Simulated scan of single mutants.
Amino acid sequence: MVTTFFWGGTFVSARYAVSEAPPFFAASCRFLIASVVLALLTALQSHRQGHSFPVPASLRQAAGLFSLGLTGVFLYNAIFFTGLKLTTATSGALIVAINPLLTAVLSALWLREKVNSVQVAGITLSLAGVFVVVAKGSLQVISSLSFNKGDVIMLGAPLCWALYSILGKKILASFTPLAATAYASAFGTLLLIPAALLEHAAAGAPVPGFSFLGWLAIVQLALLGTVVGFVWWYQGVQRIGTARAAAFVNLVPVFGALLASVFLKEKLIPAQLLGGAMVIMGVYWGSRSRCRTRTASMPMVSADEAKP
């Protein structure tokens, strides 16, 4: 539960961070810190297990790890931070909540995983909920297609994460989850830093920086939302099992909306409440059905598959 609280807080922290600095600069700071800590944790884990630091055994493995950094770190965070600069943390949290079911859809198309009728119903309900959130419940918005740009951009975030999750399934056959995440974070950072430099050159503005609260937001994103959240998620899955852990993911948009109302003074409108409830119900419905169809021999679910 604390892990999902941290993940819900990332929407508030990111919203605050991009109010002080450009999106790519904020994302670079987040993952530069996270990469260092994840690399140290991976080295410590390897040492405790009596192994050397894991390295790709082939160019194909290296390309696979790079693809994780491209989709789950670089593209996801480019969309995540850019979208939150233009929309509210509440809307962002509710939109990104469709991650698990969008992953199920792409898994069915790409990996040929079976999707039953209950999952289809859950996916449909969630997508309808996202549409209500994006349209703010306004028929005028729908008829004129005058959607908030940030909401539309945020729709790309769960797509990137779904791609990252599917690619991660193959990588986890060769690397531990911690090592794969460390490499993804490192490769993503190597892509984010040049993008931040180009962003700065194009803007022609002074070198960006953060206030104390801004750096506090970055530290929350890097350490609590990325490193601690990852480690604690896996510890939780190992203790209570896949199915029970997956249900907790539905708390992320709830915590995101509540924290946004407290720290950013964002107000929940009826359309967001309705759409959010539809998203959460649809995700819960579809995810529970998906958990029941998994084989009992699987020890854990990938955090990449369940994490918003």
Score class of each variant (00 low, 15 high):
residue 2 V to S: 13
residue 14 A to K: 02
residue 18 V to G: 02
residue 19 S to C: 00
residue 22 P to M: 07
residue 23 P to S: 07
residue 25 F to C: 11
residue 30 R to V: 02
residue 31 F to P: 00
residue 31 F to W: 06
residue 38 L to H: 09
residue 40 L to K: 04
residue 48 R to K: 14
residue 55 V to Y: 14
residue 57 A to Y: 09
residue 62 A to I: 08
residue 65 L to H: 09
residue 70 L to S: 08
residue 71 T to A: 12
residue 71 T to V: 10
residue 73 V to N: 12
residue 77 N to D: 10
residue 89 A to W: 09
residue 89 A to I: 07
residue 92 G to I: 06
residue 95 I to M: 01
residue 95 I to G: 01
residue 97 A to F: 01
residue 99 N to K: 00
residue 110 W to D: 05
residue 110 W to C: 07
residue 116 N to P: 06
residue 123 I to H: 12
residue 124 T to V: 13
residue 131 F to I: 01
residue 132 V to T: 06
residue 135 A to H: 08
residue 136 K to L: 03
residue 138 S to V: 05
residue 139 L to V: 10
residue 147 F to S: 08
residue 162 A to G: 06
residue 164 Y to N: 14
residue 165 S to K: 04
residue 166 I to F: 09
residue 168 G to R: 03
residue 172 L to S: 07
residue 180 A to S: 13
residue 182 A to F: 03
residue 183 Y to A: 08
residue 187 F to H: 09
residue 190 L to T: 09
residue 192 L to W: 00
residue 197 L to G: 08
residue 198 L to N: 10
residue 208 P to Y: 01
residue 209 G to K: 09
residue 213 L to A: 15
residue 214 G to F: 08
residue 215 W to N: 07
residue 217 A to N: 10
residue 217 A to E: 04
residue 219 V to A: 14
residue 219 V to T: 14
residue 224 L to R: 00
residue 225 G to P: 01
residue 226 T to Y: 04
residue 232 W to Y: 15
residue 233 W to A: 12
residue 233 W to E: 00
residue 243 A to T: 08
residue 245 A to N: 10
residue 246 A to M: 09
residue 253 P to M: 03
residue 265 K to N: 15
residue 265 K to R: 15
residue 270 P to W: 04
residue 270 P to E: 07
residue 273 L to F: 11
residue 276 G to V: 03
residue 279 V to W: 04
residue 284 Y to M: 15
residue 291 C to T: 14
residue 293 T to P: 00
residue 297 S to F: 11
residue 303 A to Y: 12
